[in-house]
Design a protein around this nucleic acid. Structure first.
Lengths: 218, 218
DNA sequence: ACAAATATTTAGTTTTGTCTAAATTTTAAT
DNA sequence: ATTAAAATTTAGACAAAACTAAATATTTGT
């Protein structure tokens, strides 16, 4: 698989999730920032290699084999994103471009060991689920932090209240988009939460918790 | 810089260290596993871009700019090797192929943060020094472990005694080529050493220490 | 010094992934 | 149901990086 082929497969995968069935030449061209004629050429090649199902003028879908490849690329991309945020202090919005490069590195052992090193994460800093080695997916849902059950962990993916004081609070407490948050305990009395973030325990009020969105696994 | 150009620059750098002055077309071709005619083509391109000094039939040397690029690639390669061994449990002999790919990832922040994450290592798992961000090099020397001064650290790069019992001993104590070893203390009484390896303190006899080679910085 | 051996370069192709321009098919509108 | 618009494909070309075969330079052995 060349770099370019992998990019096409990944894009067809992402566009295909829109559930409209098959993916159009034009939409691929737009995402690849290339011309439709180039896309046609590449699709033919991918089709000959058995990675996609293609009928002229009818758009394209991933074959079973193509889907497997796509999932392995997505897996790599998201694991690297976790690595960049958790280990190298990248912020949520800086990771994509670099992960885009790292996802093409070819080494099964590298991916396995990276997965282990990161503690087998199931979700990336954008809250998207990470496919397992054999391509299985957990579904993820978005919840306000105060609605997440005790013991669950999730990724911080957004705020309900975006007022400067609230954002300042988050900043002061070192809570950023992309951070993993574990709900350690909840006080019955006032609904306040004990959470663990970057291995540090902090205590936050229900008011804060009801303005932070987490993405959690099912 | 394309991938291929980077490979050429790196190879010219390594061959050039042989101090014969300029690097021959043939030697580059051998290392690149390509044909001399292809090398000539590429050298012309690199020369036009100001990365190398080239006169027909006279071989090639890196320009100042080319050297800067080469050092940055070497730096990346060796930092990734440290990462693979220290963080992902790769062994000394598994890292090269993967680092060969990782060295081409383009992100200044990635390299800086990786360097920080690894604790600014000065030497890679093969005992070769890692150029600093601005291309400076420490010289490295090979020493028997029992000749390394207290407080120094080095990389395990070889054994003097390669008998099965000795190798078995190393294995049992989790000492492998590529491991970083810190000399914590030496017992005056019997010359035995307290060393730290992978964050674990162990105590080894002088007999062991006099059969293990470390590579240390200056 | 000069022929033979070796090293290097040139010339002309190939492959990959792209492009433009033109042709064709599908979709949408009336 | 036609036709205009949009989407897609074909045909022909190009740049990068490689190749083969042939030509040219350099080095070496005597």
């Amino acid at each position: 698989m060349t770099l370019s082929e992998e990019d096409y497969i990944k894009i067809i995968y992402h566009l295909g999730k829109g559930e409209s069935g098959s993916v159009s030449t034009n939409s691929i061209a737009a995402r690849m920032e290339t011309k439709p004629s180039s896309v046609t050429d590449m699709i033919k090649k991918l089709s000959e290699k058995g990675l996609v199902n293609y009928k002229k003028y009818q758009g394209v879908t991933l074959s079973e084999y193509g889907l497997k490849i796509a999932l392995s690329i997505v897996r790599k991309h998201r694991l690297w994103e976790v690595f960049l945020v958790e280990k190298l202090e990248f912020s949520w919005d800086e990771v994509h471009e670099v992960a885009e490069q790292l996802e093409h590195i070819k080494s099964e052992k590298l991916v396995d060991m990276l997965d282990k090193h990161l503690g087998y994460p199931q979700i990336d800093p954008h809250g998207d689920p990470i496919p397992s080695k054999n391509g299985e997916f957990k579904k993820s849902i978005k919840r306000l932090l105060n609605e997440v059950p005790i013991g669950k962990e999730g990724i911080c993916v957004g705020v309900k209240d975006s007022s400067p004081p609230f954002l300042k609070f988050l900043d002061k407490n070192n809570i950023a988009l992309g951070d993993t948050i574990l709900i350690v305990d909840k006080e019955e009395f006032d609904g306040s939460l004990h959470i663990k973030i970057r291995d540090i325990d902090i205590h936050i009020s229900d008011q804060i918790a009801s303005n932070l969105y987490l993405r959690i696994i099912e």
